[in-house]
Amino acid sequence: MIRRATDLLGVLERALTVIAAICLFAIMTLVVVDVFMRYVLNSPLSFTYDLIGLYLLAGAFFLTLSDTLRVHAHVGVDVLASRFPPAGRRLSEIVTALTGLFVFVLISKVGFDRALENYEQHDVLSGAIPWPTWISAVLVPLGCGVLVLRLALQLVGHAVSLVSGRDIFPLPSVTDEARSFE
């Protein structure tokens, strides 16, 4: 059951990462076009700053949070964890997941409330184009909500592995840099 949940969540995470990559490509393209328009044709795009700042950067960041955790690519200090036995490393992963769950459930809740409020009030960014702010605001609880699912899955997986004594859920590998401190 844990394996199936991991696989399903992985599909969602990879799909969100593809969307984030598209956002990043759009940022790059818009900046190049805007620079060309500004300095060659003396006619910059009026919407570039708002579009990138409001939607694309938020999408590139928040939509990749969970997938980055899935592949253990977040910055981590594993100098101490590398010295723990497997049970100690599992306990460390459980404490980390619990802490992350507490923080990101709160961020998801506040982000959802903000997005809902922006939607209900038809909140828009003032400027040449009235960009609706709820679309940007919904990226926060979406990305953090998927991260909450990943953290909950890791919590359950490591707890079951710790209690059963079997490697049901994989531990992150200890990096060579952490081993060099031994």
Score class of each variant (00 low, 15 high):
residue 177 E to Y: 01
residue 4 R to Q: 15
residue 156 V to P: 08
residue 122 H to T: 08
residue 38 R to Q: 10
residue 10 G to S: 09
residue 114 R to D: 07
residue 43 S to V: 04
residue 149 L to H: 11
residue 156 V to D: 05
residue 15 A to N: 06
residue 38 R to Y: 00
residue 105 V to K: 08
residue 68 T to K: 02
residue 44 P to T: 12
residue 171 L to V: 04
residue 65 L to K: 15
residue 76 G to N: 09
residue 53 G to P: 07
residue 46 S to F: 07
residue 111 G to W: 01
residue 115 A to N: 06
residue 160 V to E: 06
residue 69 L to S: 01
residue 12 L to F: 13
residue 170 P to A: 10
residue 77 V to D: 03
residue 170 P to H: 05
residue 95 V to Y: 09
residue 39 Y to D: 12
residue 62 F to D: 07
residue 51 L to I: 07
residue 109 K to H: 14
residue 119 Y to E: 02
residue 86 P to N: 09
residue 180 S to I: 00
residue 26 A to K: 03
residue 141 P to R: 03
residue 164 S to P: 00
residue 61 F to S: 07
residue 166 R to W: 01
residue 138 V to Q: 13
residue 47 F to H: 12
residue 16 L to M: 12
residue 27 I to N: 05
residue 166 R to L: 10
residue 58 A to I: 02
residue 91 L to T: 08
residue 170 P to S: 07
residue 38 R to V: 09
residue 94 I to M: 07
residue 96 T to P: 03
residue 66 S to L: 04
residue 143 G to T: 06
residue 156 V to C: 06
residue 109 K to F: 15
residue 161 S to E: 02
residue 163 V to E: 01
residue 114 R to T: 09
residue 169 F to V: 04
residue 81 A to Y: 11
residue 23 C to D: 15
residue 139 L to K: 08
residue 153 L to N: 09
residue 79 V to G: 02
residue 114 R to F: 00
residue 81 A to C: 03
residue 84 F to E: 00
residue 67 D to M: 13
residue 17 T to D: 13
residue 35 V to A: 02
residue 4 R to L: 15
residue 164 S to I: 01
residue 128 A to M: 15
residue 126 S to M: 09
residue 72 H to E: 03
residue 85 P to H: 14
residue 145 G to K: 14
residue 120 E to M: 07
residue 33 V to K: 00
residue 99 T to G: 09
residue 30 L to N: 15
residue 167 D to E: 14
